[in-house]
């Protein structure tokens, strides 16, 4: 579980162009569930993700990962937590150009000092699982959108993180790929991963894999909706 206590994040603090992107947010995000953050553009979803994913430090407040206070760690150890705990899927996938799909997947594990052969085998197995065995050695910029998405997912999984964090993963995808993405998330959830997704995309929030929807506005949490509970309630109604 991830717990946020009165978390605030101010960009450009102390300067005239300061922006309060996340404002006094307290929130609990459950394990092994799919949580979606939604809200209008500029409401602070991405910023909140960077705080949860240890990419940035909150200006105020605390963030707990299980029983570990992760918001006050020095950068070196924040990175350690990030590497071990979170896998990221970025909006534009952010694969490194000029590197092959395989190398892109291996990248997050370099600092762990795992032996090259073992790491390569693991990355190849992951890519194979995503049906990319034939495209493994292709340069990442030559991959199609769907392939790039799956490489990005494979990269997020290479360090076997408990949490998957995805920022607008479907913003530039067509319906078929969105469906495919939802299926991947379903499989990951089934494998016991905890997932956080930000999205504008109704196709995501309406997906039945989603357990909880958090709505943000102007840096605040507007509502927290437990959709699996809702569905269960609906199901019960139907059964009755």
């Amino acid at each position: 579980m991830i717990r946020l206590e009165h978390v605030t994040r101010i960009h450009n603090e102390g300067r005239p162009n300061a922006v309060v992107a996340v404002n006094d947010v307290s929130l609990e995000i459950p394990k092994e569930r799919v949580t979606v953050l939604r809200g209008p553009s500029g409401s602070g979803k991405t910023t909140l993700l960077t705080l949860i994913g240890c990419l940035a430090r909150p200006t105020q407040g605390r963030i707990w990962l299980d029983d570990e206070l992760i918001s006050a760690l020095p950068e070196r150890f924040m990175t350690e937590v990030r590497r071990r705990t979170f896998g990221f899927i970025f909006q534009r996938f952010n694969l490194i150009r000029g590197l092959s799909a395989l190398e892109n997947v291996m990248l997050p594990a370099y600092p762990t000092g795992e032996s090259h052969a073992a790491l390569k085998a693991r990355a190849a197995a992951l890519l194979e699982r995503f049906g990319l065995k034939a495209r493994m050695h292709e340069k990442s910029e030559l991959l199609s959108g769907g392939e790039a998405q799956r490489v990005a997912i494979a990269r997020a999984l290479i360090n076997d993180p408990a949490w998957i964090i995805a920022d607008e993963p479907t913003a530039s995808l067509d319906t078929a790929l969105v469906d495919q993405f939802i299926e991947e998330m379903r499989a990951l959830k089934k494998a016991g991963k905890s997932i956080i997704i930000t999205s504008h995309d109704p196709r995501i929030w309406q997906a039945d894999v989603v357990d909880r929807i958090v709505t943000m506005q102007d840096g605040h949490i507007l509502s927290v909706e437990d959709v699996s509970a809702r569905e269960r309630a609906e199901e019960k109604e139907q059964n009755a």
């Binding site: 070196r76 990175t79 997050p108």
Partner: peptide, 19 residues
């Protein structure tokens, strides 16, 4: 910009500043 982004990606996916 490309290089800066690359370093950003490396750090985001788990590279430490000293790496």
């Amino acid at each position: 910009a490309e290089e800066r982004r690359e370093i950003g990606i490396l750090k985001a996916v788990g590279w430490e500043t000293s790496d």
